[in-house]
Design a protein around this nucleic acid. Structure first.
Ligand code: FES
Ligand code: FES
Lengths: 161, 161
DNA sequence: CCAAACTGATACTATCTTGATATCAATTAA
DNA sequence: TTAATTGATATCAAGATAGTATCAGTTTGG
């Protein structure tokens, strides 16, 4: 079971980059290069976030993207909703035979409670919170220079594979 | 985001049927018919559960499947693990640039905590618990007779669509 | 003004996961 | 002995996710 898909993953990381340089426009290309994401794919993700008013854009030379709101108001929960849809229990359980009364179904009840817990937790995690953690712990890394290979050390330690 | 896949869904429902008639062998066919599941697909699910010692089987005429343990010891969590694998946060986040130190990463920390909460909750839900709820609330329904159409009333009310 | 650096929009392809089917051998009860 | 059953496995279909390509429109700096 995968909690975060690539789109959500890329979205969060892109937002963190924008959050780290608030006030200036950052191009999709620079994000893609620095964070090693597929350019066109990332662009789609960014456009989706524009539609949801999380970021704004400027076209043309020197254009790019910028946060549209306070990082503390951008919640991972919303990102998950945007890119992965709301949590669904199962297409269904217990069709005909069982569960004559849906509202009283235990399993359904349990699962909806769990769903709520998960949502509440992701609600608490904001881009702002993540940004503060990153800067506080000095985890921010310099971008790769042109043609430079990613540090293999980093690949193994700092990263979830 | 889908919490339970078809396999887990079918597994739970099959186990409930077995649990409702403990001590006798129930054939895959009768489960498939009664619960309206694809026969061969269900068989795969049942075999997987045999491999994990949740049920036992008897071959040949009058053969079928039977619970291998107390319903209270069959946990939805284990079923999810069997059919959907353990919860994965994301294939990865924050590769090169960010998260030099994986163990200190906020997001990772948050997500793992959430994962634990979810697992704990599903751990509590057992087949036995579900069985008791079902019988207590009179939710058990008679099987469909040959060629009989599912009650449309039931389709709309008793069921999660 | 024009070329280059950008985003907007959208269509397409590839890959992976899930869901479903099909087949054949082995077993067992009547 | 035959029909009902499971064991094992191979294959296919459908859907979701991931990634690519293209072209039109906008902006800026020379
Ligand atoms: S599981 Fe759907 S109503 Fe009970
Ligand atoms: S998200 Fe992977 S280590 Fe932080």
């Amino acid at each position: 079971m995968k909690v975060l898909t690539k789109k959500t993953d890329y979205a969060i990381r892109a937002l963190l980059m924008l959050g780290a340089k608030q006030g200036s426009y950052i191009s999709a290309k620079s994000i893609a290069v620095e964070q090693d994401m597929p350019y066109q794919f990332l662009r789609g993700v960014l456009q989706e976030m524009i539609r949801h008013d999380l970021i704004i854009s400027k076209e043309g030379v020197q254009g790019g993207f910028m946060l549209a709101k306070d990082p503390d108001e951008i919640r991972v929960r919303q990102l998950i909703e945007i890119f992965q849809g709301t949590v669904q229990v199962s297409e269904c359980m217990f069709r005909k035979q069982i569960c004559a009364n849906r509202s009283r179904c235990v399993l359904r009840h349990e699962i909806m409670r769990i769903e709520e817990v998960v949502n509440n937790e992701f609600e608490k995690v904001t881009i702002g919170k993540l940004l503060r953690m990153l800067s506080a712990e000095g985890n921010m890394r310099p971008a790769l220079k042109d043609g430079e290979a990613p540090d293999p050390q980093t690949r193994q330690t700092g990263i979830m594979n």
